[in-house]
Every structure is written in structure tokens, then in C-alpha cells.
């Protein structure tokens, strides 16, 4: 019988990403609810010495697949190794972080294992010994509650920034074992030939804890400087509405919404954004929403925890000054 909860550690060059700790924390809660163990799969090159520490967040065991061909991530290599280990060990649940990498991996792995997979979940629970997943659909206009039928492992990815992260307990350490797997070069059809790092030091919107976003009300690319200044003071990343992106004021990767990035920060400050349904869809799981807009009838105010009806070019710089005194 399928037994145990598995999750996959996401690392780059030996550094764990925050989503890894979120998934271990969530995976541990599911494992506890089942009265079973949490195993973390750690794939990479020369990575084993990092494994035991994952116990601090709740991993009982870490299974390490160490191979030069597992760094950097490629779909081919990861899917091949994880599918083999999953088939050999039959976990009941396989939980993957819903990062760009995690979603890519999960889609292909679900097909290889021929199982159901719930992408980008915001809530996971155990009911009657089985996984129940809740996930936004139509970019958050609705939620779907889903379960699995004749499908093991029960697979899900979880949205970044949503699952509560355990406080690390430095007295704990996980049991570490080497995974046995085969990796055939013939299966590796894609190759990462270059990695271009963003050196701005900004956290990607999908992972950002705070976001300051600007819309058509910003009037131009240069005017985003006032949002950058505010963002710098509070440690936020800068997003945009589609109008701002289509106007060429911001990169397309900054777009928040149904056809852009779906974000879940603890604070989302929308400046000069009207609150079109496609925009709201992408940020409605933010914990606190602030809207700054000069039109008191703008739909964004219906969703905002704090609304400021005023000209953003007056409010934003003043807010930046006020916050400098606080943070």
C-alpha cells in the first residue's frame, strides 16, 4: 500500500529556495495528519552535505540523488529520476512547490506516472486518509475542491507564499540515504546552455512578500521611479497592470493578473490601477491590499483593505517619507 508523504527540495547551486521550506512544512503537517513520515527528495550535484539540515523544518528522511547531470534542473533528468524512485517506493502523496520549475516538473511527472495532479493549490488537507486539495481556478474567480481516484501518488503543487513555514528547530536533523536510480544519457534531450542572473536583487513577484504595483495611472515609464523608491524602503518588488506593460513602461514579466503572474504577497499596494477583473484575479489572495486611486468609484476599492482616494503622485512620495520613519 502506498505510504508516506514525499516532497521535492528545490535548490539552485546548492542553495535551497524558500519554497522548499514551505513544502517541507506543509508536507510535515500532512504526514502528521496521516501518522506517516515525510521524505524529501534532494536532487543535485555534490549536494549531500546539505541534506540533514532539512530535518530542521520537519523532514524525517532525505533521499539524495547526486549526479552531475542533475545540476542545473532539466525536465528530462528530474522526471526520469523522480518517476523511478516514486514507482519503487510508492509514496501516498507527492507534494511539489508551485514555482516555475515545480510546475514544469509536476506536469510531466503526472503524465509519466499517469496520475491526477492538482496544480497551484492554496490549501491541502487529509480527509479519510486521502488528500483533498483546494485550488483557485479562473485565476481565483472560483476555487475547486478536488480529490483523487485510482491515482497514486496523489500529486499536488502548492502556490508559493501561501503555505505557512515552520520555524526551524536546530536540534533536529533528518535521516539521510542515497537514492538508487539510473539515468540514461539518451533520455536527456534538452540542455541549459546559459543562465542569465537578474542582478537587481529583487525577489520575483510570485515569491515576493510585498509588492508595489502601478497601472495606467502612472502615466509613463519614468514615473515608476516613485514606486521603486517606495519599494526600496519597504523591501518590496514592483509589479504592473497589463495596461502599464502594454504601454511599454514595464517588462512583460512584471504583469500581474489572469494572463500574467498570480501573486500572493502579504502586502499588495496598487497605485493607479482601476481593478479590472483580470487584474484582481491575479492578486486576490494577497493578505492585505492597499489601493491608491483618485477615482473613488474605481472597482479596486471594493477589494482593498485600505483605500486612499487621492492623486498617487502626491500620496506615494509622502508615504515613502512616512515609512522611512517607521522601518
Amino acid at each position: 500500500m502506498a505510504q508516506g508523504v514525499w516532497t521535492i527540495a528545490e535548490q539552485r547551486n546548492g542553495e535551497f529556495r524558500k519554497i522548499t521550506y514551505e513544502m517541507i512544512s506543509e508536507g510535515k503537517r500532512l504526514a502528521d495528519a496521516l501518522g506517516q513520515e515525510l521524505t524529501v527528495l534532494l536532487l543535485g550535484s555534490n549536494i549531500k552535505d546539505k541534506a540533514a539540515d532539512l530535518g530542521q523544518y520537519g523532514a524525517d528522511k532525505v533521499l539524495v540523488a547526486d549526479d552531475a547531470r542533475l545540476e542545473p534542473y532539466t525536465t528530462d533528468a528530474y522526471v526520469s529520476v523522480i518517476a523511478e524512485l516514486t514507482k519503487a517506493n510508492e509514496p501516498a502523496i507527492l507534494l511539489i512547490g508551485g514555482s516555475v520549475q515545480g510546475k514544469d516538473l509536476a506536469g510531466r511527472l503526472a503524465a509519466r506516472l499517469d496520475v491526477g495532479m492538482a496544480q497551484d493549490c492554496t490549501e491541502l488537507l487529509i480527509d479519510g486518509g486521502n488528500l483533498v486539495a483546494i485550488r483557485p481556478i479562473y485565476a481565483g474567480k472560483l476555487y475547486a475542491k478536488v480529490t483523487y481516484e485510482n491515482s497514486f501518488p496523489q500529486m499536488a503543487t502548492a502556490r508559493p507564499n501561501v503555505m505557512a513555514m515552520n520555524e526551524p528547530d536546530s536540534s533536529k536533523s533528518a535521516e539521510v540515504a542515497d537514492a538508487s536510480f539510473t539515468l540514461d544519457d539518451g533520455m536527456l534531450k534538452t540542455k541549459v546552455v546559459n543562465v542569465d542572473k537578474d542582478t537587481s536583487g529583487k525577489v520575483d513577484l510570485t515569491e515576493a512578500d510585498k509588492i508595489v504595483s502601478g497601472g495606467r495611472g502612472m502615466k509613463g515609464a519614468d514615473e515608476f521611479k516613485i514606486l521603486e523608491d517606495l519599494a526600496d524602503v519597504i523591501g518590496a518588488s514592483v509589479g504592473a497592470s497589463r495596461s502599464a506593460v502594454d504601454a511599454g513602461w514595464r517588462e512583460h514579466t512584471d504583469q500581474v493578473g489572469q494572463t500574467g503572474k498570480v501573486v500572493s504577497p502579504s502586502l499588495y499596494i496598487a497605485c493607479g490601477i482601476s481593478g479590472a477583473i483580470q487584474h484582481l484575479a491575479g492578486m486576490s489572495t494577497s493578505k492585505v491590499i492597499v489601493a491608491i486611486n483618485k477615482d473613488e468609484d474605481a472597482p479596486i476599492f471594493q477589494k482593498a483593505d485600505y483605500g486612499v482616494v487621492a492623486d498617487l503622485f502626491d500620496v506615494v512620495p509622502a508615504l515613502t517619507e512616512e515609512l522611512k520613519k517607521i522601518v
Partner: peptide, 17 residues
């Protein structure tokens, strides 16, 4: 293999202050 149990309305977000 992935069964829909039910669809739910999103947690209500009402206008704040």
C-alpha cells in the same frame, strides 16, 4: 483521476477602510 468534489466561491473580500 482528479475528481471535482465541489466548486467554491472565493473567500469574500469586502471593501475595507
Amino acid at each position: 483521476k482528479l475528481k471535482i468534489v465541489e466548486l467554491l466561491s472565493p473567500p469574500a473580500r469586502s471593501a475595507g477602510k
